[in-house]
Simulated assay, not measured.
Amino acid sequence: MKESDWQSRLAPLGLEPVGDPQALAGGDIAAVSRLETRQGAVIVKRDDPEALRLEAEGLQALRDADSGLVVPAVIALDDDLLVMEALDSGAPRRPARLGEGLRRLHAVAGPYHGWPRDNRCGPTPQRNTPDSDGRAFQRERRLLALGEACRQRGLLDAAAGERLAMIAARLEEWLPDAEPQLVHGDLWSGNVLYTPDGPALIDPAVYYHYPEVDLAMLTLFGRPGEAFFEAYWDGEPPADWPRRERLFQLYPLLNHLYLFGGGYRAAVTATLDALGG
């Protein structure tokens, strides 16, 4: 978008751009830029209007949770533009504050497992049809739904699909029928920023469910450190946490298989093996 176009799009929103926008990494899903304005630095995303509306809704849900974590404010939503507060990253890591904040976020209870609307995890459509039982929600809206999507792309063979279905059928044995709680929904390390004001969360895919889905995603491609877990658990973790961690990593692994192809097949297979599927 030319500078004159930025001027014409942002002026009605009360923003006066200064200079050209700076494209940011992560624009494979949406075009993301940092832009200096006379009102302060902002982040501007261009994407499908409905996707941006859902992201803005998710950011507001995280802000309303009052967790102590930093969440960028939505400044404006205008058709295919989402304008947000810019956050300065690169501050020292504070994993204990992240753990404390995430525990407070997960204390926000929901009326059901799911969300009033479907959204997406990255570019993948995410079904959120509410269910009173978290086991049924995880089975039908997450594992089997994404497993079938992978099968249709030829990424999951019949044998692996049957193993996944066997694990999904056992969720009532493994999980309690717990109260649904607010989750970020796509909490990989790239969606956590360390700012001068503390840890920040971006790019949510919110819904109500078992809070361990966020923890499992956060540990899938790295570890946040023991200080994080000490602050989050504020005591002892559940005795079956290692199995729950593997179980809740299945959905993001299937999502990576769906998005990026067979390079993630081995990780899905290893997780099925670990769960006895």
Rank of each mutant, 00 (worst) to 15 (best):
G147L: 12
R139H: 07
L254A: 08
A76F: 03
Q22G: 03
D177H: 04
K2R: 12
D47A: 14
F221Q: 15
R53I: 02
E3I: 00
A200K: 06
E140H: 06
A239K: 15
A65P: 12
E36F: 00
G101P: 10
E16N: 09
A158P: 05
M166W: 02
P237N: 14
A41Q: 05
N128F: 04
G40S: 10
L253T: 02
A73C: 07
P92E: 06
E236S: 14
R63W: 04
D273V: 00
A136M: 07
A149K: 09
G99K: 06
R153K: 15
G40D: 09
L105H: 06
G198K: 13
L259K: 09
E16S: 13
P211E: 03
E57Q: 15
G262F: 01
P180R: 08
V44G: 08
V70P: 13
L182F: 01
L10K: 08
Q181N: 10
V42I: 04
A65Q: 13
G68M: 05
V74S: 15
G185T: 07
Q22V: 09
V206W: 08
F137P: 14
Q138C: 15
R141W: 02
K45D: 01
P237S: 12
W6M: 07
I75P: 15
R135V: 03
F260I: 04
A86Y: 01
R223W: 03
G26Y: 00
Y207V: 02
E16R: 13
S4V: 01
A231F: 01
E236C: 08
D48L: 15
Y264Q: 15
G58T: 11
R117H: 10
L98K: 02
E140N: 06
D197A: 10
L257D: 01
V70A: 12
R127L: 08
G58R: 13
G14D: 14
Q22P: 13
D20E: 11
